[in-house]
Design a protein around this nucleic acid. Structure first.
Lengths: 239, 239
DNA sequence: CGTAGTATTGAAACGGATCAATATCTGTGG
DNA sequence: CCACAGATATTGATCCGTTTCAATACTACG
């Protein structure tokens, strides 16, 4: 257990691009009173790195909201292969279930703070507040689009292209942004490999290739900065 | 080979696996009175094959429900590549939008019948009926799981494995089932290729390979039957 | 500060993309 | 109903990139 961060917390917060008209930027969905309501039924948990939140096919109990930190949602396959389905950042929700059981494993990567919302109480809350209901829909639709984006990324045939797209995705995540223009890469290379459907070696080589082409510069394994913005953006879009 | 059965229709119908406890089978979500309500705001459209329903980035106007037939949802990329994001079967919903605009193109493959639900009226209906709201969430979550399944499929490195998984998916779609145990394949090989992220040639070769291995037998291009169930299922799961 | 896990880099092999040619289907008009 | 033409599908040969295997460098954690 790590000492609790001192951030002004007024309850779970989620964000998404509305499917109705908006200006293209992510928006915080819940109104203050809704966040207070959710906080009423929520328990907060502080996770140290590499802590399992739940395992696949364990019974559904909570819906989760990330307050702080980064987590990964993944599945293990009979062959021993592991596939990372999504990385979870602050304001993301998780706890997708099917048939009363969670479909993925979720584990923290960095230290993290999460809200746990008991589903029964959440359903009760949603019944009394149609707007809260609607906000949740927006968020789920948002997750759907994120999943589609990953599918597009993984669909690319070139490893460098996938990697560039991935880094570009990291760059656009508000909760991951830094004031210095660096791209923060909280997860390990193997996590990225399992997310992009590549071997760790291919990820490594893609990083080298990006550097060699002068598009990117790695500060260390967990931070990079774009050195050729037009070139980088073109590679991201080229497909 | 194209059976277009007429079922007694009393309004839009959607189905999903609930995320709460259920018995693993897809369930019709809407109650009769809800379907009648939706029918009240819906217009029905009969589409001939290869009809565009909407194009990407055109303004959001309706949510759609498939009554009959098969459609595809796809995106075109600058390189000229096309990626099929999903095939849409009866009881599926579509019309995913971002920022007030549709994100994909949707086009009918076979002849199809769809319900068009104006979003403004739908939102009104959902405000007055929290349960309807909830049903829609269930369906969206269901779509999310389907998208994840595609991501898993596309993540496989072997073409035969992807193809087997795809056929297995087709087989499990209730609205696509036949009484003779055939797997109906309504879409073209190129559509499958664009869905699986393979070249048309690779899809073709995968079909041949499945036949050569004695797992499957193709009646014609749009129907097949499994000749070695254990072998087929094992291939599907092996990853 | 040491050690185990993680990352990078190199060499070889496999699999799918691509190019090319042929076969088959679909739907249109005679 | 049949014939024809354009589109779609299959099959073959070659090329390229990623996987795999292997060895070394690095890093983070106890």
């Amino acid at each position: 257990m790590k000492p609790q961060q001192q951030l002004p917390v007024d309850g779970p917060s989620i964000s998404a691009i509305s499917f109705e008209s908006a200006n293209g930027t992510t928006r915080t969905l819940l109104r203050p009173e809704q966040r207070r309501q959710l906080l009423g039924i929520a328990t907060e948990a502080q996770l140290s790195p590499r802590t399992m939140v739940y395992r696949e096919s364990s019974p559904l109990s909570h819906l989760y909201v990330v307050a702080d930190g980064v987590l990964k949602s993944f599945r293990d396959f009979p062959s021993g292969r592991r596939r990372v389905m999504a990385f979870l950042f602050p304001q993301d929700i998780f706890g997708l279930a099917e048939d009363g059981r969670y479909v993925n494993n979720v584990q923290s990567i960095t230290g993290a703070r999460i809200y746990q919302l008991p589903v029964d109480k959440l359903l009760g809350l949603m019944k009394r507040d149609p707007d809260l209901h609607f906000q949740i829909i927006c968020k789920v639709v948002h997750e759907l689009r994120v999943a589609q984006r990953r599918a597009i990324m993984v669909g690319r045939h070139d490893a460098i292209g996938r990697m560039a797209m991935f880094l570009s995705m990291l760059e656009r995540i508000e909760a991951n942004q830094t004031r210095h223009g660096f791209i923060l890469i909280p997860m390990a290379r193997t996590d990225i490999a399992e997310y992009l459907g590549l071997s760790p070696e291919a990820v490594s080589r893609a990083c080298s290739a990006l550097t060699r082409r002068g598009l990117l510069k790695f500060i260390d394994r967990h931070a990079a900065s774009v050195t050729d913005r037009p070139g980088f953006d073109q590679l991201v879009r080229s497909m």
